[in-house]
Design a protein around this nucleic acid. Structure first.
Lengths: 404, 404
DNA sequence: TCGATTTGTTGCTGGGCACAACATACGGGT
DNA sequence: ACCCGTATGTTGTGCCCAGCAACAAATCGA
């Protein structure tokens, strides 16, 4: 092959077949990493063996794919050389700026978390520039940590609790952080691009690769509020403005208790963290609670000891949550729900109720009973999802990395 | 150019750039039919002028595009030759088999309805083969009518009130027609392919081209039940099993009236046709009502005369419907709702209520107030949408038509 | 040990797009 | 009327890249 590769592709064309094929081949390697050969890719994609070979060579030269020593076994004939994603190539940096903690993590091409660091500290006391400096420092240490593992950051993504404008990569409004029209990504390393999105959305993506590659599901994130991330065919659905997944203020009961949003009987008033605390008889004084974890752990402790008020509160929350989710499943025809955030910690008591309600109220249940699953990651989910979204971008357009 | 064109493309490749570019060029012609030149397409797509020329030539030879005599005016320089979609090329046949009527229509490439025929007759008394024979006859007359206009049917699509399996093109279950695992498309002309879908879905598509090309909206179809079609980015969202849009049994009030589905307080019990009739004090005896239209017209008449019970019933239905739709908009972040079915006929009384509820309860309303619109078509909407889906298929893959 | 079978590579061919050059057609200034 | 600038459509050329076929390599089974 040519030693000096292609240098400047103008790439004005609307459709770039080579890029699409490179992505196709790379994603097939990712799906069966270490278990697939060039011929296998050719067979599964429908491309010619020679074409698949050429694509794989380019991916190997680009540092995305490697040949493992192993050979794929077959009945007869020459065994193929197994291909796998490199775990020392590009990596994604994920940052999660929340009200009471900040998390950074680095994920390699295989989706494995290679570095993770969570700092529990209330950000409300700091200035904007103070927080941004903090982020920059954390990100810098993450980069050096990645470099020692042989990883190079290809991009970064930031999760924030608020509304974002992805096209301009700015935070439109994050009330709990006191941010408004702020560019967060400029302080980050990883020169390629800085992605930005809502926490619930990135948290939803943290489950994407664990399930089937093109899965569709609803990720519910319980916090003070209740949010959801909608994943369709393995990709986030963001809606026309990027505000999708607002289920916290779906009306459960028009005559229910008043909500700060101005309506009555919102889901949050039944299944939000504050509501569960109040129903369980726990003081929800913000002065004493240091963040999400301790109070939720307290509830879980009480439930384990069999406290009736707590158990009743959790049952009620699970019922209402399940009924609301069933409605969402009916609208979207989704067969899978993932419970994240506080619902993950309270899953032993919440999940059965949700499962029952969903199984009862989902119209397609007789033919396809929906499944309810507990999230794999806790508070680090948004950061991991953010980092994985960077990896996802590489998998869907490897040329950008190869031409870097 | 070659007189004898390409004949057999194996097309095993996963990505076919030529097909994608042909579709791209064709869709740009469709968007600005009669107002765009080859150079304009090149400019908008980013393709080279010579490439755009080649694509357009192929589309012209294939009978999809024509040069109008007009020239696109500019400041200076040689004027371009205006391009437009042919209105005497391929056409789509749409069939709607409903409980109390059957509709056929033919739509040309521009989306215009060129033939329409609605037969009001209750199908419940007939046998399956009888109905299918009726469909075949109607479709045959539609084909001859199309032929006299110089149109050739490129495909057909059937809308049915029930659950379908699109991959096998069979009706899984249509309770009101007594159908189960039935292939409806085999009796149709238009040899290319027979599409099949739910009525609400095709009805939703009937609005697609009237709005912006890549619009996202929720089409609500009020009948005996209440269904919805979700259009995202100009394309139908069907869900994992094809059952999306089931909003009729979303829970409005857990302590509400019982529903035949086994739950309580479903939306249909408040905003469905029977519920409105009952609330307005009209007898809903199925023996006297001959189909949907007369009874709805009766309600509209009563409302026009100012009957208090009827007005109250409509207000209540609109309120509940609007509140439920607001929840859907919050989940999906959609900014647009189209009211179809009986809500179209009752729009003067229903729409304001829906608009108010949606504006109040959609969380993004302060930044982007959602719009509520009345459907353009009435009972013929599913048939038109079905026919347009055939056209949509040509626009998204013109090669299939060119290589026919 | 030999044939069957599968894998990976190489040379060849052809489709299709970008690019540049050219003929064409119009507006505007002198 | 003439020329120049500008934009359109067409033609010829080169290159990327995928398919195809042939071949060497490597393993299994009889």
């Amino acid at each position: 092959m040519h030693a000096g590769t292609v240098r400047h592709r103008h790439d004005t064309s609307a459709v770039n077949p080579r890029a699409a094929h490179l992505s196709l081949a790379l994603r097939h390697v990712a799906e069966a990493s270490g278990q697939i050969s060039r011929a296998g890719i050719a067979a599964r994609t429908g491309l010619n063996r020679s074409t698949a070979s050429s694509l794989i060579d380019e991916l190997i030269n680009g540092g995305l794919v490697k040949e493992t020593g192993a050979t794929t076994r077959n009945r007869a004939g020459r065994p193929g050389t197994a291909l796998a994603l490199r775990d020392d190539g590009p990596a994604g940096l994920g940052v999660d700026v929340n009200v009471d903690y900040t998390a950074v993590c680095v994920v390699d091409l295989t989706g494995a978390v290679r570095y993770k660091h969570v700092v529990a500290e209330d950000q409300r006391g700091h200035t904007n520039t103070g927080i941004r400096h903090r982020i920059a420092t954390l990100a810098h240490t993450a980069r050096t940590a990645a470099a020692t593992s042989g990883l190079t950051l290809s991009g970064s993504a930031v999760a924030v609790p608020g509304i974002v404008d992805r096209t301009r990569a700015t935070v439109t409004l994050a009330p709990n952080l006191g941010w408004r029209d702020l560019d967060v990504t400029e302080v980050l390393p990883g020169d390629v691009h800085g992605l930005l999105d809502n926490e619930a959305n990135f948290a939803a993506l943290s489950e994407a690769t664990l399930l089937h590659d093109r899965a569709s599901y609803l990720y519910v994130s319980g916090q003070i509020g209740v949010g959801a991330g909608i994943v369709l065919d393995g990709r986030l659905y963001r809606g026309t403005h990027g505000w999708s997944g607002e289920i916290g203020h779906l009306t459960v009961d028009r005559d229910g208790p008043a909500c700060p949003c101005g309506r009555r009987g919102c889901l949050e008033r039944y299944a939000g963290q504050e509501a569960i605390l109040r129903a369980a008889g726990v003081s929800s004084d913000p002065g004493t609670s240091l963040g999400v974890r301790p109070t939720v752990a307290l509830i879980a402790d009480r439930a384990r000891t069999g406290d009736p008020a707590t158990l009743a509160a959790l049952t009620r929350a699970g019922e209402v949550l399940g009924a609301t989710l069933a409605g969402c499943l009916n609208l979207l025809d989704l067969g899978h729900v993932v419970l994240g955030g506080i619902y993950r910690d309270l899953a032993p008591w919440i999940a059965p109720e949700v499962e029952r309600e969903v199984a009862t109220q989902f119209l397609g249940a007789p033919w396809a009973r929906p499944t309810v699953e507990v999230a794999a990651y806790g508070p680090e989910a948004p950061a991991i999802g953010a980092a994985r979204s960077v990896i996802h971008d590489i998998l869907s357009d490897p040329l950008r990395w190869l031409n870097r």
